[in-house]
Design a protein around this nucleic acid. Structure first.
Lengths: 201, 201
DNA sequence: GTCTATAAACAGATAGAC
DNA sequence: GTCTATCTGTTTATAGAC
């Protein structure tokens, strides 16, 4: 524990996370996960009973480690324009380290919203506060009136979408893997600029 | 043909498209497709030999019917700001009628980019011309300098992303299905406004 | 061309030895 | 706890009658 070693359960979770996030629930095989973990199938069932339960553990874990990081910046008590810069910077950084997560989450959520939406709700992610902050800036004459839902949608869209569309973007923009990384790095500058220009008076 | 009737092959394609786009390649069952088409499984193999070949037909078809519609507006010979308005309007309209397509395409493309990227290339979608148009507007002093790749990424992101993230957005924005439709309708105004403000001098 | 029946392969889950 | 072997159900695919 104190060293670099994982116990079997952690080993399984790590392997399952990799396989599920890359192949999706339907595309993942228990055998793939066992191979990735360097153990055999039976052990997966010993620890998690079923594929479905193992998946649910992974999904919950992904949501719980991702959402708070993202939301915390959005609801922080800092000036709006600072917040926009910090959010894009930190969010894009997190995504660059976990590029397959958004595709995974949105795909599973689309296939099974009713079953999985509860995991989102449990994080207590409340972005109502951003609406208040926008309202104050409007009243102070700093920005134009904007529906907070659209503001957030615009912001998140421009950060996340390139990761979901990576193969397509690489195809039509004729980028290689390194070119894509540079492109993403550039967006830490491009996105906040675009957002701020779109709302400034 | 001249009437409202489809022959068996068309019937299969229609059913397969529905099932594949909703459940993905891995989640789709040949039995589901047969049921949807009102025929039996054996006929699917008679017409398309294998699930994989049937899937490839559907994927090709989706790309071929979608991409040209989208790209044609982007490369049309019309003033830039008009183009931005027309693009968002027509693209969002197409997406609203086919909300599951982007999730389907990006998911399959992520799982199997090498195998499927050729289908994109075959459409001959070349957006180089938009770069030239942007360059001219910059030289005319109408817009700020902008990397065309980011311009296009921003534009497409804001149009497509809400459809991919629909369940999540409905969850955190507390919208019902009707609320989501209104939200999408509003974006035909919001998105071009945001894009144009972000590039105008 | 379309069907029913069945083969063949696969994948999740369990039994039982160690 | 971890393994091998096996069972059970599912799913793709084929054979063969009509």
């Amino acid at each position: 524990m104190s060293e670099n070693e994982l116990n079997t359960e952690q080993l399984i979770l790590k392997a399952a996370r990799k396989v599920f996030t890359h192949k999706g629930l339907d595309g993942a095989r228990m055998q793939d996960i066992a191979n990735e973990a360097g153990i055999n199938k039976a052990l997966l069932h010993y620890y998690f009973r079923s594929k479905d339960k193992l998946f649910e553990s992974i999904f919950k874990d992904v949501i719980k480690t991702f959402f708070p990081q993202v939301v915390s910046v959005l609801v922080a008590d800092i000036p709006l324009f600072d917040k926009i810069h910090r959010f894009t910077e930190s969010y894009i950084d997190i995504l660059a380290k976990n590029p397959e997560i958004p595709g995974f989450v949105f795909h599973e959520l689309s296939k099974n919203p009713d079953r999985l939406i509860g995991n989102i709700r449990e994080t207590g992610a409340d972005i109502g506060i951003i609406g208040e902050q926008l309202q104050k800036e409007v009243e102070a004459g700093n920005i134009r009136p904007i529906n907070p839902a659209h503001f957030i949608a615009n912001l998140i869209s421009m950060c996340v979408f390139p990761f979901i569309a990576r193969p397509l973007l690489m195809g039509i923009m004729k980028m290689d893997a390194q070119g894509f990384d540079s492109f993403i790095e550039e967006r830490k500058q491009i996105v906040p600029e675009a957002i701020i220009r779109s709302i400034k008076v």
